[in-house]
Structure formats: structure tokens, C-alpha cells
Design a protein around this nucleic acid. Sequence first.
DNA 1: TTGTATGCGTTATCAG
DNA 2: CTGATAACGCATACAA
Lengths: 339, 339
Amino acid sequence: MDKTHSSGGRPVPTVADVAAAAGVSTATVSRCLNSPTVVSEKTLKRVMEAVERLGYSPNFSARALASNRTNMVGAIIPTMENAIFARGLQAFQEELQRHGRTLLVASSSYRLDLEEQQIKTLSARGADALLLIGYQRDARIYDYLEKRDIPVVLTWASRPDSGLLSVGFDNRKAMKQLADMVIQEGYTAIGCISAETGTNDRARDRVEGIRAAMRDAHLDPGTLQLIETTYSIENGEAAFAQLMSGAAQPEVVMCGNDVLAIGALKGAASLGLRVPEDVAITGFDDIELAQVAPYPLTTVHVPHRRMGQLAARVLVETLDGLEPPSVELPVEICRRQTL
Amino acid sequence: MDKTHSSGGRPVPTVADVAAAAGVSTATVSRCLNSPTVVSEKTLKRVMEAVERLGYSPNFSARALASNRTNMVGAIIPTMENAIFARGLQAFQEELQRHGRTLLVASSSYRLDLEEQQIKTLSARGADALLLIGYQRDARIYDYLEKRDIPVVLTWASRPDSGLLSVGFDNRKAMKQLADMVIQEGYTAIGCISAETGTNDRARDRVEGIRAAMRDAHLDPGTLQLIETTYSIENGEAAFAQLMSGAAQPEVVMCGNDVLAIGALKGAASLGLRVPEDVAITGFDDIELAQVAPYPLTTVHVPHRRMGQLAARVLVETLDGLEPPSVELPVEICRRQTL
DNA sequence: TTGTATGCGTTATCAG
DNA sequence: CTGATAACGCATACAA
């Protein structure tokens, strides 16, 4: 009927309203908002005043449809309840915000099938780019994303030679470094409490790091006593009890993350074992819990905040047409009282 | 030029492609996807097969523009780094996901001005509804949201009589309950470490709860030794040291949350004070840290997960046209070793 | 039950 | 530098 239906109520002005108020065309209004440099000083001012006066703000969906960009970036993480992901995600979000992007969140509960589903959901929801944890997933997922031209950054892991963009660290190398230190101290009977290694590449690489250190020290990696469980303090405690009730009690229990290690610490206390005199315990991540625990935990410090921040930066640069390189972040062994 | 430009490349099929493939109109395709009950069994099947075969997935922006709904719900929280918010947000997200909605996240760093900005950002980004923390904010913000018809749920607080929808708990009542217990134990010299009460309604209400308990017990609320600081273990430790170095050393230090309380606990250890013999300490929230601390912390348990889940449910119901009531969740005093 | 035609609010192309 | 106007992809009255 009538294109300029700017009659009646005030609710939610459109470009047409602004154009009418400023006495220009909608095209000019759009230009003022998107490429202010290309319009004359005078009209720019007039238009911006109208924008201000009407309280205009561009309709997100329409803009997205016309420009084919949403300025939303998705992140799919196992769970925010793990402090390390919450921390990284917070930094990621702050950096996105700084660059005018908004964060879209989904969680996978450490399940690859759910992750795939979420990847599809978030891309269908218009995410311009995606942050993913780890590298283990079906190749067709990467195809899917590439076909849709959705850039991805892998975090919490490092895959320099995979052709995939990543901002993370080398889990295997980090854990090997810690295991080297443990072995150097004279420990030979090693136990390990890990997340499921079948579906969690970070967990698998960490265990592999321990085995590598054992090999280097001419210890039989087959003697590593490994228990796989789900991340939680309770499970860590139970796994620890199980390890210590076996025939060959380990002298040191290396845990896949700090949460499991805290559980192990509790387990030791229940069994009346002194740490580190009777049994040494190590963690991974260096969360706050690690420093406040009854015995400050020997662990691997991971720069989660920096990782999240850099991941955002790298993604934004990619969206801006650049080709930033992957970055491998250094980790640091934190030797405290439990070793 | 040509409406059915389904020529050439495969990338990203549209309704038109599906319609052509299935030999129906675009309207029918749309109906198959949105109201399957209204189309014939036969064509439905044929269309869905075409959808499957082409790997079609509706364009988010176009759908949002046409239907005026994004199916995205926003949440603005102080920070995900605080475990309580991460936990609540995780539950919120899971429940949204279950209802086909996606979570949009922004953070305010406990600053009201930033929060206002984020509220505008997320509504401009098309959030269908919003989760906010606490109730203290400029009235015009509520107007703004109401005018835009964006439902809001307030959490971490309870405002039954404000006309605003909330899913939370009564901070004042909760802290008063804890303070009642403290006073009942015979403590009269009370210290308090809190977040800034000027811009944080939860913090203010908690302190008010302590004062109310003192009044009830005929103690002068003016004798409450209050220190306001930012949430962190370090700040808790520093504030504790400051309290204990004053003229009138408190017999009990009630902290605004568990993080500050852990700091106080560390402070006590540094000063060589025994807990609770020399000084009692209490927290608020009941995060994991509270149970694993050197001395298990007496604190107030808040059902964060349930709060997040219910908040999502209430928001979804509102979007579905219902008018769910606010809910006030019960909290529970957790008496442990520090009192 | 299905098809036709139009609107949704912007951006972008192409003249002027 | 500015103004018409055609996409953008889908939903939905309205008609058949």
C-alpha cells in the first residue's frame, strides 16, 4: 500500500521515520550509520540529530538479512560450571564486546554428539564465527562450517599443523613437563585420575604426556594406573580411594584437572594419608580452589583469560578479512605443597 | 530479475529451492516447517525429504525479520567468573535450549551504567526476553523494555510486590536468619565484609539483614563494623586484617559472600587466629570452595541452579503468552565449622 | 489443503 | 554526495 507508513504510534522508529524527520532518503540514513565518512558533514549532523531525537536503533534482523552478518559470535563449551571455561568465556565475551560483537552460548556437556548439534544450531542462528573447545570432532563438521563460510577458532588445545585456526596450549607437552618433574623427584609408581579419554582430546593428551615422560625415564608406561571418570570432587575422591585400595598403591596420583585433584586430596584426608609424605598429588589448570585447598596444590597454570581474549581477537580479525596465525600459549608448572 | 534464482552453486539452499525440489510453493514449505499439522500427510513427507536432501535450514535473519521473533534470550550478569553466576547461567542456558531458545550473554562488571548499555545492546540485537540480576536500576530502563515489549525476569532477589517478574530469594531475610543464629550463639561484636552497598542491592540487603537481627536482639546496629570492598579472595583477606587491627576487634566476621569469607579465613590463618575459637567467620552462597576450604564454611546455601532453570521457564512461558507468577526460593543455613 | 502476493527494515547497486 | 529501487529469505493474510 503505502511504503512510508510512518503514521500513528511512536513505538520503534525505522529508517523511514528518521529519513522523513531529517528530510533525506533512507539510503542516506543508512550511509550515515554505516559509512559516515562518505556523507556530507551537514547532512550527517542533521541525520544523527534525528536519530537521537527519535531514539532510533536499527532493526537487528533486517540489518542481518540485508548485510548477511549478525555480529554475533558463538561459543560452544562443555559447561560453564567448570571455572576454567567460565573464566575463558568471560574474557572472550569482554573482548567481543569491545569489538561490537555479541556472544552466543551453547553447552555440550562434554558430549560430541551434543556439540555437533549445537554447532548446527548456532550457525543456523546466524553466528558469524564460532569458538570450539579441543579439536576432536568429525571431519564433516569442519566441512559444514567451511561451506557456510563460518570461521572457527579451536581453544584449549593447539593444532599448529592442522590447517585449523587455534589459540591454545599443548596439553601433552604441559602434562609431560609436570610428569618429568614428578619422576625426577624419584616417584615411579604413578596413578592417574582422568576424564574419559575416548571423547576428550585434552584429557587424552594429558595422559599421553604422562606416558611419554615415563618412556623417557625408562619406566614402563603400562604400569600407569589409570582411572577415568567424570569431573567432580566426589568422583575424584572415589577414584582416589579405588587407586589406593589396589594391589600396587601409587606413590603419586596425577589428576587430569584441579577438581579431581581436590577430590583426591579429600580422599587422602579420609584415608588418613599425609600429603605429600604418604602420597603426592598433582592437578591441572590452577583454579582458585587449587591455592585455597587445605594443601596448596601442585598444578599446571593455564592462562585461561588470555586464551579467551586472544581467541576473540583472532576471530574478529578473521571476520575483518585478515588471516591471523594460530597461537600456542605457554603454560607454567606451579609447584606447591602437594608434591 | 528472477525470483527463482536457484541456479548454479549448491551453497545455502532457500525455501525456493526446497519448494522447487518438492514441487510445491514456498508457502507450503514454510507451513511444513512451522505448522506441520495444517498440511497434508503426503506433501509434508515430500517436503521434508527435500529439506533433508538439500540440507536446508531456514535463514535465521529472514525468519526473525518476518516473524518478529529471534528465539534468543539475553542474560546480563556481573561476571561469569563468579561461580554462582556461572552456575545459574548454565542452568538457565540448558533450560532455554530445551525450549528451542538460544542464550545471548553480556556482562556488566557490577556497574549499573554498563548494565544499562548492555540492556540496550541486547534488545537492539533482538533478544526476545531478558534475565537481569537484582532490582536496582533506573525506572526508565523498565519503561524502555516495556515499550519494546521485552519481558524481563529479575533474579538473585525477590520483589513480589513490585509488579516485576522475579525468580529469586530474599537476601535480607536470608542474612538475618544467619545473623540471628550468630547472635543466639552469644556473639555481640560483629564485623562485616561486604561488596559495595551503594550499587549492589543484594549486598545492601544482606547487610540490612544483619542490622535487623541486631535490632531484634537489642544490639546497637551502629556498632556493626562494616568494610565494603570488591569481591575477591585478596580483598577479603585485606579487609579482615583491617577489621582485626581496629580498636574493637569483632568476635565474628560475617561476609557478603563465600569468596570474601575464604579471604577472611586466609587472613585469620596469617594472623595466627584460630577459627572459630578466636574469631568466627560466615559466608554466603555455598559455593564449592566453601566446603573444601581449610575450615568448612558456615554459610547460606542458595539454590542457584534451580533459580536459573526456573527463570528460563518463567521467561519462556511469558513469551508463550502466559503470565507465570514470581517465585521466591527458600534458602538454607549451612552450619559448618567456622561458627 | 495449497498457491499467490506482499510486507518485514536494511543494505547495496546504480543512476543522477 | 544523494536518491530511487531492487534484493535479502521467510511468514502470512487472502484467495482459490
